[in-house]
Nucleic acid binder design. Structure first.
Length: 507
RNA sequence: GAUCCCGUAGCUCAGCUGGUAGAGCAUUUGACUUUUAAUCAAAGGGCCUUGGGUUCGAGUCCCAACGGGAUCACCA
């Protein structure tokens, strides 16, 4: 019946499963009443008052078994950590012999009293133990050694990145420390939500399947709707929809959005990723900058418990205020050149003199971008707002109040990476139309990442978008920074992987 | 897309200039009633990623494919 090839160890486990059943034991009962997590017991046990924990019920996965004849020790792992269980034949009688049907990887429930062993480990002395789930596969569990300083050394745990990403459930079992990252990720997002909710801005949901994609420059994923017989795009951003809601009269909306971009994958790019976007009416980018400072400061305090964070050996301070620099001042500072208002040809010359390699056919915008990323970006280690971008780089941002050719836009850089992008939103309908039509020209010239004209969006802007400040934050990159992970794959439970080749049977 | 590295037992890894496949953990059996990377004794477990080639002989050398990693390029 089964087409799965079982190895020797799996066959033995299945045999044990059958034996449990034949003894009238259900290896998959429906529930277990638990009173304590492992960590609760470890922190609340007091040697002078053992009676306070004279009957506890714990549950978890068996991670180690040490049999010593008529007494045994095992470690079980629950969401909070590990705790040792002591099983003694004198106390368990016949049931003790069932232990031979229990293996590393099985999930068990234990009732007993808490005590401290001769070696000093707080443990549960079992009066009962119950199979809650018999595992029939071998899980790659590395042995653990608790060092004197309390750190844990793990031996031979699953290390192959491919397996860790493809079978994250095994990774979580064998390397439980990584749960920290994902718990922090959740705290970061929760902090954002409550920060916005407290200010009366509302969380909304906008389409993931979009007939026209927009709001960013990127290649989309295409899919097809059968009933309508039309192609739809997975969103690359939700910006244009959120602005429509501001047009409609909401004064603060945000969305934590899964976006999809059909581009390369590397340490900082996954085809699907999470972004926050928020739009607040009657505000501008200067106001937004202060809001971002406060938001990030709050997030870091909540998720990390401190205003400073260590990332790959560098201390990052989120103490307010953050540095604020104008883009062209930064060019001046790091290249010695004034690039303001230069033509494409002049920028090419400037790039050459700054020893930045650029494609000779690149647009002025791309040359500036290249010089910036090579000469400036690596210096932006501590949180730094970069302000006032050239208009060509920002087709959805409002023209600067006083600086011709610039827009009211900032990006926040940390550790040389962009983590936030914001502007005073462009709400001049004629200007917006002209800018998107410029994009269409660039697109027609072969740049398939330039924006597509979305007539309905333009119509919404015609109707009237109030003065509005908008912000986008790359959640994954922020989580990387705050959890000291240098690969996006380590902050996603299930990073995109090439599908494994199907087995060749039947061909 | 380019370059380099990797793919051997359930896991972590050895395997030299080609000569019938190794260890630790895990598993099985036995001993052991406070151990903790438990210990001690014995045993079982392999399509060496796949497909070609060179060779009397390939885990090992060559080519290709597949999967992964790293760096670079592209991309916010």
């Amino acid at each position: 019946m089964s087409s799965v090839q079982r190895n020797e160890q799996e066959l033995i486990k299945i045999e044990k499963l059958h034996e449990l059943r034949s003894l009238g034991i259900n290896p998959y009962p429906v529930s277990f009443d638990r009173t304590h997590h492992a960590a609760e017991i470890l922190t609340s046990f007091i040697d002078e008052q053992p009676d306070a924990l004279s009957s506890v019920r714990v549950a978890g996965r068996i991670m180690a078994i040490r049999k010593m004849g008529k007494a045994s020790f095992c470690h079980i792992q629950d969401v909070s950590g590990r705790i040792q269980i002591y099983l003694k034949k004198d106390d368990l009688g016949e049931a003790y012999d069932l232990l031979r049907l229990y293996d590393i990887g099985d999930i068990v429930g234990v009732e007993g009293f808490v005590f401290r062993t001769r070696m000093g480990e707080i443990s549960v002395h079992a009066r009962e133990f119950t199979m809650l789930t018999k595992s029939i596969t071998v899980i790659p569990v590395g042995k653990e050694e608790v060092n004197e300083d309390g750190t844990v050394t793990r031996y031979d745990a699953i290390a192959d990145k491919e397996q860790r990403y493809r079978k994250r459930y095994l990774d979580l079992i064998a390397n439980p420390d990584i749960k920290e990252t994902f718990i922090k990720r959740s705290q970061i997002i929760r902090t954002m939500r409550s920060f916005f909710d407290e200010r009366g801005w509302i969380e909304v949901e906008t389409p993931i399947l979009q007939p026209i994609y927009g709001g960013a420059t990127a290649r989309p994923f295409v899919t097809h709707h059968n009933a309508l017989d039309v192609d739809l795009y997975l969103r690359i951003a939700d910006e244009l929809y959120l602005k429509r809601l501001i047009v409609g009269g909401f004064e603060g909306v945000y969305e934590i959005s899964k976006n999809f971009r059909n581009e390369g994958m590397d340490k900082t790019h996954n085809p699907e990723f999470t972004a926050l976007e928020i739009y607040v009416a009657y505000k501008d980018y200067i106001w937004m900058m202060e809001m971002v400072e406060e938001l990030f400061n709050t997030i870091v305090l909540n998720a990390c418990g401190s205003e400073t964070v260590e990332f790959q050996g560098t201390e990052i301070s989120f103490a307010r205020p953050f540095a604020k620099k104008k883009m062209f001042d930064l060019f001046q500072e790091h290249t010695g050149l004034n690039l303001r208002g230069l033509s494409r040809e002049e920028l090419l010359t400037a790039a050459k003199s700054a020893h930045v390699d650029v494609d000779p056919a690149a647009s002025a915008m791309k040359i500036l971008d290249e010089i910036f990323s090579v000469k400036v970006q690596p210096h932006l280690i501590q949180p730094t707002f970069v302000m006032d971008y050239p208009v060509e780089m920002s087709p959805l941002a409002k023209a600067h109040q006083t600086e011709a050719g610039l827009v009211e836009r900032f990006e926040l850089f940390i550790m040389g990476k962009e983590v936030a992008n914001a502007f005073s939103e462009l709400n001049d309908p004629l200007d917006q139309r002209a800018r998107l039509e410029d994009q269409a020209v660039i697109r027609a010239a072969g740049d398939d990442e330039a924006m597509v004209v979305d007539e309905d969006f333009l119509h919404a802007i015609d109707v009237g978008l109030p003065p509005t400040a908008g912000l986008g934050v790359g959640i994954d990159r922020l989580v990387m920074l705050l959890t000291n992970n240098d690969s996006i794959r380590d902050v996603l439970f299930f990073p995109q992987m090439r599908p494994e080749k199907a087995h060749l049977e039947g061909e």
